[in-house]
């Protein structure tokens, strides 16, 4: 399979992941689109180095989270977004209650620290502690401690409301 084909297949299979990460890290649609494109670009740049690796999803999460972190930290960028005009980065659930809950959830996640933002995202994606540790670089025990702290923070946010 050609590199381009293998890459587009990988992205298509995992486009939901990129969408969710973009939405967690950016609150405006414009920034979400820019981050989405940046993640795809970085994945493409590192695709050669990945091809020999065992687990595609671990690599994808790692690159996507790193890109998201540097994206929000970098100074204001000036650049050209290529070809994403046709991409409508919108998820509108049919159920208004779900929509409301998702908005509330994103608002809560965005209040977390940068480290915890990445960890909760992986936890919500159904990743096990070992996998989260492997993607983030924190030890398993640190991941466990952080998750219990995140739960506490979420409860506090709830009480404050």
């Amino acid at each position: 399979m050609r590199k381009e084909e293998a890459f587009t297949q990988l992205i298509k299979e995992n486009e939901g992941i990129i969408f969710k990460i973009s939405r967690v890290y950016c609150d405006t649609l414009e920034n979400q689109k820019d981050l989405y494109q940046d993640i795809v670009f970085q994945l493409w740049k590192g695709f050669d180095s990945f091809r020999g690796e065992a687990k595609a999803s671990t690599w994808m999460y790692r690159v996507a989270l790193n890109t998201a972190f540097t994206f929000i930290k970098k100074e204001k960028r000036k650049g050209t977004s290529v070809g994403i005009d046709n991409l409508h980065l919108k998820y509108e659930p049919d159920d208004p209650i779900l929509e409301e809950r998702l908005a509330e959830m994103y608002a809560q996640i965005r209040q977390l620290s940068d480290v915890n933002k990445g960890i909760i995202l992986l936890l919500l994606e159904g990743k096990k502690y070992e996998e989260i540790a492997s993607i983030t670089g924190f030890s398993r025990s640190k991941v466990a401690t952080r998750i219990s702290r995140i739960k506490e923070t979420l409860r506090t946010q709830l009480v404050k409301k």
Partner: peptide
């Protein structure tokens, strides 16, 4: 949301390949 997104795939080969050509000039 993840289940819904699985059903709402919107990327095409063309869009993906165009995204790999982005040129950002950061500060």
């Amino acid at each position: 949301m993840s289940q819904d997104l699985e059903k709402q795939k919107q990327l095409t080969d063309e869009i993906i390949l165009k995204m790999t050509q982005q040129k950002y000039t950061s500060q």
